[in-house]
Design a protein around this nucleic acid. Structure first.
Lengths: 237, 237
DNA sequence: GGCAAGTCAAATGTCTGACAATTTCACAAG
DNA sequence: CTTGTGAAATTGTCAGACATTTGACTTGCC
């Protein structure tokens, strides 16, 4: 049973209480995406509070991207359909927070990233499509530019691996990995790649694209282990 | 005095703009944990807006757990120390939201869960300690109770697998998996296990504990695949 | 009848001023 | 020294007003 520890203060903070009520309505399915909430005046009357209080509640929900508002005659507050982009952003920001708060070291972060990714590669081998290979090849091409800054190299690396995970064709995997990878990106950005390191990474990337094209999941797992070791070497040098 | 140096999309929604400014201050480190923000009156004067608008902005930040407020003479808005629990809860809640709002099916959810977990087992085999085995054995014992409701069985299953992931000794993995598993728990709760299904799951759990004790990661991966297939059979029957 | 322009109504966004509730602190009374 | 009490500061809530936006409706012209 998922016990909701969201039982803060029922007596205090009306705006929080109202927000919670509406939030429950949304999560319980009474309100679905693109439904329009009652107007602020109606809500204030329905809940017996002032319009200002209702507005504060709505702002809370808006801050969580649960609703959006539109002005004008047909305006109002509408239930948001959560987009993948929103999800990426929100989960990634939480992941970043967790990592900085707990001062995770780069070794732990790498280990986690490659472990999670390793779990996806068999599915990726099974479901990959041409456009995934294309995206990855494009990133490899970018990575070969020796003028690329470390940060840009890292960003391209992230894009490469996101394409790999997307190839698994599982949205849950995609956003979980995206959150983790983006969360540890600040740590990865502190890496300084020597040219030799970059070459090693690029070689592995190329081998991974080949293995993905041939749909050989087992080989992808091995390459992923190599890449983890290579990255750890770069980090610890 | 409204500055005209404001960045894009600033024409609308003053309260969002103010919230964003304060948020930047917090993230940029100008304000650190437990710092007190200026009072609402001071903020309204400083930003040239009414107190109501400032309050809406503060509610937005409060909804993101960035600040907390206290009434009274020494009250005000204080920057929250981001706790592990907050960030973790936020991550789990966005995972839940995503899954329900995007109507992820149980097959996709299972696939993702076991794929992520599969990536952890080699680390778990390497770093597991006795107390991890103990936790898992305790859950297996609970699962053997035939009076257990499906929901309770599922909860015990979650606890078992959380222990397994914790055994990897990597906090990043632990909370990533925990968020994912918590997010798909509502879906898993809809499963109805026949006794035969439960027996199969329990046998696999026992085999996994053995493999973990012997630190044989490869066998754990195979067992994880079996468990995934078994769970999918239960889900689709 | 059809189209264009103007008008209107509904809704959110913002402001103002007030009062209530809560909390701390100083200070006086005992 | 303790205790109570009131002032001050601050957030929480309210009521009402006006500004702004936007779609729908009306009107007038062709």
């Amino acid at each position: 049973m998922s016990d909701n520890f969201t039982r803060p203060q029922k007596q205090k903070d009306l705006s929080a209480a109202i927000a919670e009520r509406i939030r429950q309505d949304i999560l319980a399915g009474a309100l679905v995406a693109d439904d329009r909430l009652p107007s602020e005046s109606e809500l204030s009357e329905a809940h017996g509070v002032s319009r200002a209080t209702v507005r504060e509640a709505l702002k809370r929900l808006a801050a969580q991207s649960l609703i959006r508002t539109k002005r004008g005659a047909t305006g109002g507050a509408f239930v948001n359909r959560q987009s993948f982009e929103d999800a990426y952003a929100q989960m990634a920001s939480s992941a970043t927070l967790l990592i900085t708060l707990n001062s995770v070291d780069i070794k732990t972060a790498c280990e986690a990233r490659f472990a999670l990714e390793r779990g996806c590669v068999r599915l990726a081998a099974k479901h990959r499509q041409e456009h995934h290979l294309d995206r990855m090849r494009a990133e490899i091409a970018r990575q070969k530019d020796p003028e690329l800054s470390d940060e840009a190299f890292c960003a391209s690396d992230v894009a490469f691996h996101r394409a790999l995970v997307d190839a698994a064709g599982n949205p849950v995997l995609s956003w979980q990995l995206a959150a983790a990878v983006e969360g540890i990106e600040p740590l990865m950005n502190m890496l300084t790649y020597r040219q030799r390191d970059r070459d090693a990474v690029i070689s592995l990337h190329e081998a991974m694209v080949e293995a993905l094209e041939a749909r050989v999941g087992a080989r992808l797992e091995i390459l992923m282990d190599y890449l983890r070791d290579q990255t750890l070497r770069t980090a610890l040098s």
